[in-house]
Simulated assay, not measured.
Amino acid sequence: MTPPALKTPSDVPRGPDPRQDRSARTRELVMRAAAEVFAEHGYRESSVKDVAERTGMTKGAVYHHFPTKEVLALALVEEHYARWPHVLDEVAAMGLSPLATALEVMDRVAAAFGDDPITIAGARLQNEQASIGVELPTPYVGWIGVMTKLFQEAEAAGELREGMVPEQLARLIVASFFGTQHVSATLTGRADLAERWQELRELFLYAIRR
């Protein structure tokens, strides 16, 4: 049996434009409640009714903002990715060295994966794309690009040990971090993520720093 084709984000009908919606705060409330529900139960085991109950709203009120469950899931994943440019800008404004910038960014990402419902839900929904039936952003490649640039700058600044290849380091830290957070989520519900990230951070820094 041929599986149904994935819908692209542009194919998916959306709710009202939040910029013109007088109840934008209600939309944000729905998003946060949905993030908590999806993070706890996953896409298949969650329903719009679950989200409505968590907000104390009716299903109709939720559907006003998000016509379907897949639209709501897509919005959460997009919000998940929309947060990272702000993190990068904030860290860039601190004036740190390239290597310190890379590590500070990852520190903040680790903190978000530890306690931010939208970050956690976005990651889980990304892994459950086959169940959602909507084309989601390709994971990891953006982070690899960001880390590659920072490690190239660190190399130029003389912060890396001889023989370190920025592109390889970028792939390694991204794969190691996201693998670490996945193991932490599976074994402890991310309760030990901060500790596991610090272990990885110290080992990584010891291995690459001049």
Rank of each mutant, 00 (worst) to 15 (best):
E45I: 07
T68P: 00
T180V: 07
A175T: 12
L160R: 10
P98W: 07
V105D: 00
V30C: 00
H65S: 08
A112E: 09
E28V: 03
L125H: 04
G56A: 12
R54I: 12
Y81F: 15
R161A: 14
F204V: 14
M57Q: 08
D50V: 13
T186H: 14
S176T: 12
K7I: 10
V12N: 00
A170T: 00
D116N: 14
F38V: 11
M147K: 01
P166H: 03
L29K: 13
G95S: 11
E79P: 05
I173Q: 01
I118C: 06
E167R: 12
G114H: 11
S97M: 08
A93C: 05
A82K: 09
E28L: 11
Y206K: 10
T8G: 13
R124C: 02
G133I: 10
H64G: 07
L136S: 05
V51H: 08
T55C: 15
T148R: 07
G56W: 12
L172N: 02
H86R: 11
V77L: 07
T119H: 04
Y140A: 11
G145V: 04
E195K: 15
K7W: 04
T138Y: 14
R190V: 05
H41I: 05
D107C: 02
R171C: 03
E70T: 13
F178M: 10
E104R: 13
R19L: 14
L29W: 01
L193V: 12
P137E: 11
E36I: 11
T180Q: 01
A121S: 09
P67N: 04
A34Q: 02
D192V: 05
Q168I: 10
M31P: 00
L136V: 03
P18D: 12
S97Y: 00
K69S: 04
M1I: 13
R27M: 15
T180N: 11
G179Q: 09
E40G: 03
A111K: 02
K59D: 10
E90M: 10
S47A: 11
E45M: 13
Q181H: 08
Q20H: 09
R14H: 13
G56I: 08
L150Q: 09
L187D: 08
V141M: 00
T138L: 14
V174I: 14
M31Q: 09
H86E: 15
R83E: 09
E159T: 07
A73W: 03
T186G: 09
A33F: 04
P67Y: 03
L200S: 13
D115S: 15
P3K: 14
V62I: 10
A207K: 14
W143A: 05
L74N: 00
P16W: 04
M57A: 12
P85C: 10
D115P: 04
L160H: 04
K49Q: 05
V165E: 07
Y63Q: 05
S23K: 01
T138Q: 13
K49S: 07
R83T: 07
F151N: 05
R209D: 11
F177E: 00
A75W: 00
M1R: 13
V146N: 09
L103H: 04
E40H: 05
A110V: 12
R124M: 11
N127R: 14
T186A: 15
A73H: 07
G133T: 08
V91W: 00
A191T: 12
W84S: 09
A33E: 06
A123T: 02
R124K: 15
I118A: 08
V165Y: 02
A170F: 01
G60W: 06
S131D: 15
S131I: 02
Y63H: 02
